[in-house]
Nucleic acid binder design. Structure first.
Lengths: 240, 240
DNA sequence: CTTGACAGGATTGTTAACAATGCATTGAAT
DNA sequence: ATTCAATGCATTGTTAACAATCCTGTCAAG
């Protein structure tokens, strides 16, 4: 089971189901929960130390954001977006995020600019030191932060959902080397922030998103979760 | 209790919780469920003829779309958007719907154009004959249909949420006469569809949304559910 | 007459037992 | 040896009873 825990088991905190949803979102973003992963209720109960009800509610919320799929009588699985769904996600992102970027540039204060710089720096470091999970998470966090700077709860929520689903899409259809956004794109967007050029920032965001999408192989079959049984049976057939 | 029923009580159909969510969405859009209305579990169980579990799941989903508010140990209520939330809804709609309109124009086929005309006609009739609920519902349906023509499930879902919340906002902050969108705006958008002018359609949508927002009184206090006690005590004070 | 506290009832929140479904293993037959 | 069927187990889905909280109506005191 993937380690979802970060809390100190000694301190028995209150665990809201929002926390659970948030944590699973994070794990999916960081690609520590690949598409198709079974999310069994008992395992999650143990992992978060809560009752079954909280878990089921959390899974329902995650399903309503299409980050997990619920199959009747079979349980919850991390979503495996189809190529069509992938296209929809990028279409929605292209429709939203350039405008969010515009808003963010108009509303960014000094502290926001500093925060963007800090995030960019952390991205750079994580990338350089090959902390893959951190790099992916920070890369997604960049997009979320723009919505936060724009200061709109709806947009924040929507971007979080789309960024998370994008992680799943990259995991399934991304070229093996490509993990996340290139830092360069983010840097040029931040540069536009500092010059206060909203239009340029929005356009850079558009290019950035198209850039990511262009590196997907939506025609090819997705990278399925390796089915060990099938793997070995096929191997034996070859060896024969 | 507001009549949510439409099903034949004789025919015992399968009622999915998606249906329940959909029906409550519809009732809110039509302003048959005003902001602040208590949605008690027992009443909903009876209304839909399902167990408590289904109802609670439905309410959770509705809350995740911010159409109902869940207060711990007090139950579920139809949401009462604050002025800030109202601004957020319109900001999101302005960020999304012009782009959706563009996509829809590009992808609309003959049948889509016919369907738009039909909807426009129904809107006109409902408005003329003062079928207030129908008029509001059809007016919202227009916006949803554009997302459907664009053919993107994410956008459809988001627009539905935003349209529903807009109904709540208009109920709270709208000028007493203003019920919904003006047909004229929709007609001019459809006209742009027929000429295939995506840019114009998008811009018409922008104007349309700004037009609606400009007719709100977000500064004033919302039209609260009339508190009878307070009303009469104040009256008596004046009379003294 | 108003204000406060208390008790009763009603509603929501949680838990645990039960039912139902799917999955895996075993065994037998071709 | 492979395929199919049946049985047992594990997991999910549902129900019902229980616990906790809040609202209301009553009563007494100021």
């Amino acid at each position: 089971m993937v380690d979802l825990g970060r809390e100190n088991p000694v301190e028995a905190e209150e665990i809201d189901e929002s926390d659970i949803v948030e944590r699973i979102f994070e794990a999916v973003v960081e690609q520590r929960l690949p598409p198709g992963t079974k999310l069994s209720e008992s395992a999650l109960c143990e992992a978060f130390g809560v009752g079954r009800m909280r878990i089921r509610r959390s899974l329902l919320l995650l399903a309503s954001r299409e980050v997990v799929e619920l199959h009747a009588n079979r349980g919850a699985f991390v979503a495996s977006p189809t190529p069509d769904q992938a296209r929809e996600v990028f279409e929605a992102r292209l429709a939203l995020e350039p405008n969010i970027t515009r808003l963010a540039v108009q509303r960014a204060g000094e502290d926001d600019l500093a925060e963007l710089n800090r995030l960019l720096e952390m991205e750079y470091v994580a990338h350089k030191e090959r902390h893959r999970h951190d790099a992916i998470r920070l890369s997604g966090q960049f997009h979320t932060m723009l919505a936060q700077i724009a200061g709109n709860a709806i947009l924040i929520r929507t971007v979080k959902e789309l960024v998370t689903r994008t992680s799943l899409i990259i995991g399934l259809f991304g070229a093996p080397g490509l993990n996340s956004c290139r830092d360069d794109d983010h840097a040029s967007i931040v540069h536009a922030f500092h010059t206060g050029d909203a239009e340029k920032a929005a356009w850079m965001m558009t290019l950035h998103l198209k850039h990511i999408e262009s590196h997907l192989q939506l025609d090819a079959k997705p990278h399925e979760a390796v089915d060990l049984v099938q793997l070995f049976t096929q191997k034996s057939l070859v060896e024969q």
